[in-house]
Design a protein around this nucleic acid. Structure first.
Length: 399
DNA sequence: CCTCCACTGGAAACCTAGGCTC
DNA sequence: GAGCCTAGGTTTCCAGTGGAGG
């Protein structure tokens, strides 16, 4: 064995023997479903009542769960589903249970694909029309005599990007075998106004039951965090102050428990890295910065090339109107030997950068001198430049 | 009150790259 | 291989517009 290998093994051993503040980090993962959920008994029981008929192979009502991010919608839905799945397999009830995030799936087709996968139906990952994919899924369910409970997370994303056509089809899918409907839907939405996007027929069948999840208070967040921390951290490895700070930082926005838990996890990782015995408040503060930083760096580095170029023009040349930005941008493309996108597209990209929170874009009118977008960076220019420099093509253009 | 700038942003067509079915 | 499908990005076309200056 070479000397390098020996050193590597030593380093790994050292890493493994190093004390950690965590005893079970899994408990702070976003996919973790605790055995006990706090302050959501009402919603759990209500959803349980709504879905219980499935266990007698009857149709349940469709339901919509609303609430701001991190108010426990997803975890409640999955918690209830877990219990019902257990019961269903115990009594041999013919229902497929399926959880799917519409935003992660991306498109209608990929959503159906994911649903089908969870129901053990094989579909090609491209090449079929949405209608064909759906009818194959239905055919397979009918052939096996299963009905399906479908929990659709971030359903507002689906509707806003692809319309309500798919929901219409799902709520209208009936057969002789299932005259009341083949699919039972539980939709989850962050957006309280998304109903306006729905056709009234879809809305009436989808929103048979509606549940609203209120934000957690800071005090409630403390209890939730304390319980998670109890299973995640070794005893004495989390200071009271750090926990309170996590709750306070997340509670001040809108009681976002997911964010609070993430903050706690990152703070723990930072404490581990510096081999601290305990997670302190300063780790939480650093974690907050780190999360913010990672989010923007990630957003920038994954941008398409022309979006990066336009962003570079804004932060580098201080150009602030669509016309000026476009002019500088086309010169830049010339230098690089690239074909520039059209004015229309550039305008669209600037708006997209606004939605991502990287730029702040405002339409202003200068009267006789026209109407344009007033554009300025929304974050520290240095942070944006640093992230842009990771792209070798852009790096040569930024001073 | 009217004009007219420098755009905005909707709509539809188009292109590319993937893949299925027959 | 022909003839379909989809997704995602882009181009083309164009009607619409807030408000300074006449």
């Amino acid at each position: 064995m070479g000397a390098t290998s020996a050193k590597l093994i030593e380093a790994i051993d050292h890493y493994l023997s190093r004390p950690s503040v965590f005893k079970n980090k899994e408990a702070l993962s976003i996919h973790y479903i605790p055995d006990q959920l706090y302050f959501r008994d009402e919603q759990i029981l209500e959803l349980g009542h709504i879905l219980a008929p499935l266990l007698r192979s009857e149709r349940s009502s469709n339901a919509l769960l609303y609430g701001k991010p991190g108010t426990g919608k997803t975890v409640v839905a999955r918690f209830v589903m877990r219990h019902i799945v257990a019961k269903a397999s115990q009594i041999g009830c013919k229902v497929h249970f399926c959880y799917c995030n519409a935003k992660l799936a991306g498109t209608e087709y990929r959503l159906i694909l994911e649903v089908a996968r969870q129901a053990n139906v094989d579909l090609p990952f491209t090449g079929l029309s949405v209608a064909e994919a759906l009818s194959r899924l239905k055919a397979s369910l009918l052939a096996t005599g299963y009905r399906m409970l479908l929990i659709l997370d971030e359903i507002d994303h689906l509707v806003k990007h692809h319309g309500d056509h798919l929901l219409y089809e799902l709520t209208r899918s009936t057969s002789q075998q299932f005259p009341s409907g083949l699919f039972n839907l539980v939709g989850i939405s962050n957006d309280l106004t998304f109903k306006e996007w729905l056709d009234p027929r879809v809305l009436s069948s989808l929103a048979e039951e509606e549940m609203v999840f209120p934000p957690y208070t800071v005090e409630q967040l403390k209890v939730i965090l304390a319980a998670r921390a109890e299973s995640a951290f070794r005893s004495g490895c989390l200071s009271e102050g750090a926990l309170n700070l996590c709750a306070a930082l997340s509670g001040s926005e809108h009681g976002d428990a997911r964010r609070a838990v993430e903050l706690l996890r990152v703070a723990g990782e930072l404490a581990d890295r510096e081999q601290a015995a305990r997670v302190e408040e300063r780790h939480v503060e650093e974690a907050l910065r780190r999360i913010e930083h990672d989010r923007t760096t990630e957003a920038i580095t994954t941008l398409p090339l022309h979006a990066k170029l336009l962003l570079a023009v804004v932060v580098n040349d201080r150009a602030n109107s669509t016309g000026a930005i476009y002019e500088r941008y086309t010169k830049m493309c010339q230098q690089l030997g690239l074909n520039p996108v059209t004015r229309r597209r550039a305008s669209g990209i600037l708006s997209e950068l606004d939605v991502l929170g990287l730029l702040s874009v405002e339409v202003v009118s200068y009267g006789r001198y026209g109407r344009t977008k007033r554009v300025k960076p929304n974050l520290s220019v240095d942070m944006i430049k640093n992230a842009l420099r990771e792209d070798s093509i852009i790096a040569q253009l930024i001073n």
